[in-house]
Amino acid sequence: MSEFTPMSRPQHLPARIAAALSLQIREGALKPGDRLPTELALTRSFAVSRTVVREAIAQLRNEGLIETRQGAGAFVIQRPARHIRLEDGRMEPHAFRDLFQLRLPLEIEAAGLAATHHGPEHLEQLDAALARMAAPEASGDDVMLGDLDFHRAIAAATGNAYFVQFLGAISDRILHTIIDSRARARPEEIGPQVEREHRALRAAIAARDPVAARDAMRAHMLGSAERVALRLQLYG
């Protein structure tokens, strides 16, 4: 397997590490059945924390590229024919509108399906993501990664693997919007607002109310767009 190079901010984010490992898989340096390097080895190779490595591993698992085995580590699995991955690259601010125009219908539908099909494990994942974001000792990275975790849990709760795969494919772009929105506002302002939106979503999903869940996601997406200075034009 090829050696990795340390990543400097902002490239040390989990999505970048996931992209580097995905490239190894796509190019055959890591083949189905191969074991990924240990967390310790990856933290040393990329010069990042274990928290960041674990998030990257979680993303690869959500994308269907690897599986984790208790006590054994993470292993490459046969790549699904329907796997989705966008070419990695820096996202320019003018592309935010394009991303939100795609996310708006996708995430609204995911919220409605999650309200209908979720299991108790998905509510546990939503609660874990909320706790990660709200923890008093949470770092900026913890808050942002918790935000991604929350949306991944909703995608998983749909019961439709395409939502999980597609969200994984655009998660790096979504992270750019989260970073930008938090750079524009003070944490004490944006934090409570985002938490209210997420908790409204969680409540609607838990109540198995797809209409309320869709409405809550619509409000959250519009709020997210406004936090990066976008006003989306809606139809209907």
Rank of each mutant, 00 (worst) to 15 (best):
Gln59Glu: 12
Ile178Asp: 04
Thr116Val: 15
Ala74Asn: 11
Arg199Ile: 04
Glu39Trp: 04
Gly73Lys: 01
Thr68His: 10
Ala203Asn: 06
Ala114Arg: 05
Gly33Gln: 06
Arg182His: 08
Glu63Ala: 15
Ala128Thr: 13
Thr38Val: 04
Ser8Arg: 10
Ala29Gln: 11
Ala128Tyr: 06
Asp180Phe: 11
Arg79Thr: 15
Ala134Tyr: 02
Arg79Val: 12
Pro93Cys: 02
Ala138Arg: 05
His118Trp: 12
Asp127Cys: 03
Arg196Val: 14
Ile179Leu: 14
Val228Ala: 06
Glu109Val: 07
His220Leu: 01
Gly236Ser: 06
His220Lys: 01
Ala110Arg: 03
Ala207Cys: 07
Ala74Arg: 11
Leu106Asp: 08
Gly64Ile: 12
Arg182Tyr: 02
Glu137Asp: 14
Glu137Cys: 02
Tyr235Asn: 10
Leu123His: 02
Lys31Ala: 14
Phe4Gly: 03
Arg231Phe: 03
Ala20Gln: 15
Asp209Glu: 05
Ala111Cys: 10
Ala206Phe: 05
Val211Cys: 01
Gln193Asn: 01
Glu27His: 06
Leu23Lys: 10
Gly191Asn: 11
Phe96Ile: 12
Arg214Gly: 11
Arg132Thr: 02
Arg186His: 14
Ala153Met: 07
Leu175Arg: 11
His122Met: 06
Gly112Thr: 05
Met144Ala: 12
Glu107Ala: 04
Ile174Cys: 07
Ala183Gly: 15
Lys31Pro: 06
Ala169Trp: 00
Asp141Arg: 12
Arg208Trp: 07
Pro136Glu: 00
Lys31Tyr: 07
Gly168Trp: 08
Arg9Met: 07
Ile154Cys: 07
Ala58Met: 10
Leu60Gln: 11
Glu109Asp: 13
Phe166Val: 10
Ala206Met: 04
Ile170Glu: 05
Glu109Trp: 08
Ala131Lys: 09
Tyr235Gln: 11
Leu23Val: 06
Gly236Met: 01
His220Met: 00
Ala203Ile: 03
Leu23Phe: 11
Leu21Lys: 02
Glu87Thr: 07
Arg79Trp: 01
Ile17Gly: 05
Leu234Pro: 00
Gly89Tyr: 13
Phe150Pro: 03
Ala20Ser: 13
Ala95Asn: 06
Val53Asn: 03
Leu60His: 13
Arg103Met: 14
Ala213His: 04
Arg152Leu: 15
Ala131Cys: 04
Leu123Met: 09
Glu226Leu: 11
Ala19Cys: 07
Glu188Arg: 08
Phe100Arg: 00
